[in-house]
Nucleic acid binder design. Structure first.
Lengths: 260, 260
DNA sequence: GTCTATAGGTAGATAGAC
DNA sequence: GTCTATCTACCTATAGAC
């Protein structure tokens, strides 16, 4: 025990405990005996689920806006419309709540990448991946911001996720890129730098939204703005991977399954 | 007065005051009369300058690691090797210190971009710009992180900088890109999205350094790592701008003035 | 399960000796 | 100009009534 300042009540500076596991899945059988007790219990579970949802949603917003250290339980409670004590009742400590928010986000992060398949057409598969990432930036900007903030400040909570889950997945997907390159279907690139390019470009529109908006002179970014950004990102990334001629007209603006 | 929680002592959440001006330039003539008084004054000024430097350096580190809200004056004072009260003596409040750190960083940000010139060769000019940005990520990662953190959480301090200085500069430099495109020296791109690509890719190596390092399985990123990253970023960006054939060997690994 | 009231601890800021 | 000691405010967390 060295530091005296790194006490448990300074949660978001140098926390050590990693995220242990995905959310406790609540798959109780719901017996539905018609006793009063069972009805009360069922209602209780519904209330619990709704409250947990509201708290997580409010927490994601506040953590995104203020960072982990800057967020306060009182703020989150206000945004969730609940008394502060209830947050502690459901989540224990602020760190626990922060980890629960992060845990939700990690799934968002891995899923789109997991879809990359070597048997697919490179341009089509990469276009779909970029679209999924841009949709995430448009629809869940706060999730992206919380994730960015966590990495920016050392990833003390998700270090293990990065070193284990993400690294393994990237190893597998880098092999996909390498296969495409060796088959002559893509220009030579360092696969991991190629992924860094896609991640940084797509997440930029969520994490640096203020800068994007201000430089473009917009008050708010619309769905059309994002459609344009997405088309440009797709175009530039495909060119960078040797998958589109330098002078093509804007390609791949058409729909992709799952995007409305 | 609506909010009771947004008091002046919650500095890094919803501060309003923007950065007013660049640092007060200390261009006193230094009279050097050989009186005891003048000698004492000269020594005092030197000590002041040195202390200010040490505090700014320590503050940049702590703000980068912990974010604005998570940083504490006690931490900064420890890292600077000075008592906490001295920080307040030199900088007044924590916000003032934070703004001083940011102010230093904004110059780093504008200077490389300002060098982009329409009369230059596009590939050469863009390569130099990317190298300058990658050097900044390698040599001043904490500056990049403080900047990223400020944008991420709403840019309450540098909103005016973004809307005025940066926006004007980007307008001018977007015209350079457009001119290159209209002259057929570059593939068609949205110039501003093109800049967003360069910014996000290059700053990624500072801001997301932990993730880069972990995904690559490295304990520390070396100068050679950065040389490789830079070569890849240059290659991908040039291709994205239609400035390099898809199957070129790695280009532009040679030296550029100012890079050691 | 819900919520008010409060304990306990930390951090920003300053008074005042040197 | 420097630095110790301290004041004040805020924030996390919990006790305990309902």
């Amino acid at each position: 025990m060295a530091g005296s300042r790194l006490t448990p009540s300074r949660p978001c500076r140098k926390m050590v405990a990693p995220i242990p596991s995905p959310f406790p899945s609540r798959s109780d059988p719901l017996p539905m005996d018609v006793t009063e007790k069972a009805q009360t219990a069922a209602r209780g579970r519904r209330i619990r689920r709704e409250n947990v949802e509201r708290i997580l949603k409010a927490a994601e917003l506040v953590f995104a806006e203020a960072g982990c250290a800057g967020a306060t339980m009182a703020d989150i409670a206000d945004k969730a419309g609940l008394p502060k004590a209830n947050l502690h009742y459901y989540f224990g400590t602020k760190e626990d709540l922060y980890r629960a928010v992060l845990d939700n986000i990690l799934r968002l992060w891995l899923d789109p990448l997991a879809g990359l398949d070597a048997s697919a057409d490179p341009a089509t598969a990469l276009t779909a991946y970029i679209r999924a990432k841009m949709d995430a930036s448009r629809l869940r900007p706060n999730a992206s911001k919380v994730f960015a903030n966590e990495i920016l400040h050392g990833a003390s909570q998700i270090g293990e996720f990065l070193a284990e889950d993400l690294r393994r997945l990237v190893d597998r997907k880098a092999a996909v890129i390498e296969q495409w390159i060796s088959e002559g279907r893509m220009a030579p690139v360092d696969p991991r730098q190629f992924f860094f390019m896609i991640w940084s470009m797509t997440q930029h529109y969520a994490d640096f939204e203020v800068q994007v908006r201000t430089v473009l002179g917009r008050k708010k970014l619309t769905r059309d703005d994002f459609a344009h950004f997405t088309a440009e990102v797709v175009r530039m990334v495909l060119r960078a991977g040797g998958l589109a001629p330098p002078d093509d007209p804007v390609s791949c603006t058409g729909g992709v399954p799952g995007e409305s």
